[in-house]
Design a protein around this nucleic acid. Structure first.
Lengths: 163, 163
DNA sequence: CTCTAGGGTTCCTTTTTGGAACTTGAGTTT
DNA sequence: AAACTCAAGTTCCAAAAAGGAACCCTAGAG
């Protein structure tokens, strides 16, 4: 399977990865959530080559995750901002950060903390069920083919029982 | 910045991506959560080349995300299973799936559904605050340098206010 | 003695990155 | 007026990674 075929697959994860499943895309998005908007700022902060940065911003724009908004005319300059679709990626970013905080820290501990303004506490992101509000753990979630996709779903065969 | 330098950075997201921020790694992990454990099964399901699959499984094993467990002797065969560290990636996977379900579906809707065994409902993953239980939205979260990292944190400069 | 299964490795070609220099339009300085 | 600066890219070439196919090893089965 080539990378470009990924968004054709009947799998929401594969399709999401066709947009953001790239070495650089997620660190670009991290910076978007931190308020970075301009080409040169991304370049300076990320240590990415202009070449690749240009390509990734274009792809994120084409995917509707970022929008370009002019911030001056003569010469026209545009900045990149998250769209609503892009802001919906926040859970992905926070889950990744949380895992790193838990498993990839050194003796200094996590480099940044997240304070939840609503309650004032340092917070950790917890994934919960939209219906009952309990924490979602892998063993509590049963994956079912939806009827519309019956027989054509990406998980082609169940090889053995999960954990 | 080269890819290998990413895990040196004082940023939990960058460090997480140094382990899983790869084209193939997340689809391999998706299959792990679906119960796939063997080399040939991964290969058949993913359409990945054996070369790359071998490399990614080795990296995930080295990172402590997967463990090899023998399931027969003579000839010795081993299968790959998620460790506790690997299972902690579940929120990442579910967040990605959820975003795809919301933004990347076609007329058939999401290809799979997730049923929460505890409450019996089809569920959507919601990110909530570990302290107060409310949903975590980008605008409610304030990012602070932790004291141990003051002045050396990856977000090197705040270029302008966030959204 | 050959075939199959499982789990890889090797070799070679194509694609993607990394790195650095060049471009464009407009304002500023000398 | 010529030279310099800024922001946002684009171009070109070398290096690294991925794709594809064939080959290797161990061991049991026919």
């Amino acid at each position: 399977m080539r990378w470009e075929e990924l968004d054709q697959q009947p799998c929401s994860l594969a399709r999401t990865l066709s947009v953001i499943g790239d070495r650089w895309t997620l660190v670009i998005l991290r910076d978007c959530f931190l308020g970075v908007r301009r080409f040169d700022d991304f370049e300076a902060r990320l240590g990415i080559t202009r070449h690749i940065l240009s390509d990734r911003l274009k792809k994120l724009h084409d995917a509707g995750v970022l929008e370009k908004r002019p911030y001056q005319e003569r010469p026209r300059r545009e900045e990149y901002r998250l769209t609503a679709k892009g802001r919906d990626l926040y859970p992905v970013i926070l889950s990744l950060v949380h895992w790193g905080d838990r498993h990839m820290v050194d003796e200094n501990g996590p480099p940044v903390r997240h304070r939840h303004r609503n309650c004032g506490c340092y917070t950790r992101a917890v994934l919960t069920c939209s219906e009952c509000g309990q924490e979602l753990r892998p063993q509590d979630v049963e994956v079912e083919e939806s009827p519309a996709w019956a027989g054509r779903v990406m998980p082609r065969k169940r090889t053995r029982a999960p954990e």
